[in-house]
Simulated assay, not measured.
Amino acid sequence: MKALVLGATGATGKDLTKLLLEDQDFSEVHLFVRNNIKSETKKCKIHVVDFDQPKNWQHLVTGDVAFSCMGTTLKDAGSKEAQRKVDYDYQLNFAEAAKNNGVEDFILVSVYGADSGSKLFYNRIKGELEDAVKKLNFEKTTYFQPGILERKNSERSVEVLSIKALNFVNKLGLFKSQKPLPTSVLAKAMVNAAKIKSKGFSEIKLSAIFNFAEKIK
């Protein structure tokens, strides 16, 4: 399979790219990035693009499966407008290119609670993206809706504290369905989703992602 990855430099994207490059079921892995990154294998094809100029790169989005795991925070983006570009515009442009170029399988990392009608800005734009991608009618579409992600060496203090708090209450037997999800487990679930031969729409939430990651060894 030829895999396409948007968001390869993020925590989930890095874990996903590593798994795809190690997996013999994937013959090529194409990464769409803003800044050039190093690759030690010919299997990995890097496309440095300007995400604000989709017409210049959308013709490159050709393959068997497209993974979209790009994302940012309001703090890092600097404004709601800038965050919307990353969490909605860029990903929808990628999805539209994939659909127009005949990609049949689209896998999106969203968030638990995504809802286009939400009063929470982040949940709302994630819900709007889900709605827009679903309307593209890929042959196969999979949404992953994790809660708190456990990133390696995270510098996000609120996230780190939240993970510690959840891990503590999980040990007490509380909120087990919402335990922190390591990005490596999410990446494995995404790879598994690409290997499942099916059609239609699937939505995988919270703790179910752990089970999904173990479906294919």
Results as ranks from 00 to 15, higher is better:
13 G>T: 10
18 K>V: 10
9 T>V: 06
175 F>L: 15
88 Y>P: 04
146 P>Y: 05
216 I>L: 14
78 G>H: 00
45 K>I: 15
75 K>L: 02
65 V>S: 11
106 F>R: 02
187 A>F: 06
112 Y>H: 08
177 S>Y: 02
177 S>L: 01
197 K>H: 12
157 S>C: 00
71 G>S: 08
44 C>I: 06
183 T>Y: 02
37 I>C: 04
143 Y>L: 14
114 A>V: 04
62 T>L: 06
143 Y>G: 02
167 N>V: 02
133 V>W: 07
178 Q>A: 13
197 K>L: 05
147 G>L: 05
207 S>Y: 08
187 A>S: 11
125 I>L: 14
69 C>P: 08
21 L>I: 13
158 V>A: 14
52 D>Q: 12
124 R>Y: 03
117 G>H: 13
101 N>E: 03
207 S>E: 14
97 A>P: 05
161 L>A: 13
203 E>H: 03
4 L>T: 05
38 K>A: 14
83 Q>N: 05
83 Q>E: 15
198 S>A: 14
115 D>E: 05
155 E>L: 07
216 I>A: 03
159 E>N: 15
104 E>N: 11
179 K>A: 12
35 N>P: 00
147 G>A: 13
127 G>F: 08
45 K>N: 09
86 V>P: 08
119 K>S: 14
88 Y>S: 04
133 V>E: 07
112 Y>R: 05
152 K>H: 03
149 L>N: 03
4 L>S: 04
194 A>K: 09
105 D>F: 11
188 K>M: 05
119 K>N: 12
119 K>D: 11
72 T>P: 02
85 K>H: 14
26 F>A: 04
23 D>C: 02
59 H>A: 12
32 F>E: 06
194 A>I: 09
80 K>L: 04
10 G>Y: 08
56 N>Q: 13
124 R>H: 06
24 Q>E: 14
98 A>I: 02
198 S>H: 06
29 V>I: 13
29 V>R: 08
153 N>Q: 13
212 F>R: 07
185 V>Q: 02
200 G>S: 05
101 N>Y: 01
130 E>G: 03
90 Y>P: 06
78 G>Q: 00
208 A>N: 15
20 L>A: 06
179 K>G: 09
87 D>C: 05
121 F>G: 10
38 K>H: 09
52 D>S: 13
151 R>Q: 14
36 N>W: 00
155 E>A: 12
207 S>R: 08
94 F>E: 03
115 D>W: 10
199 K>C: 00
200 G>T: 10
205 K>C: 04
123 N>W: 01
9 T>S: 12
127 G>L: 07
44 C>W: 00
68 S>N: 13
55 K>I: 11
145 Q>Y: 15
57 W>A: 03
150 E>Q: 15
17 T>M: 07
132 A>W: 09
138 F>T: 08
23 D>Y: 03
144 F>M: 04
51 F>M: 13
186 L>C: 09
80 K>A: 11
175 F>E: 10
91 Q>C: 01
86 V>I: 15
155 E>N: 15
123 N>H: 13
163 I>F: 04
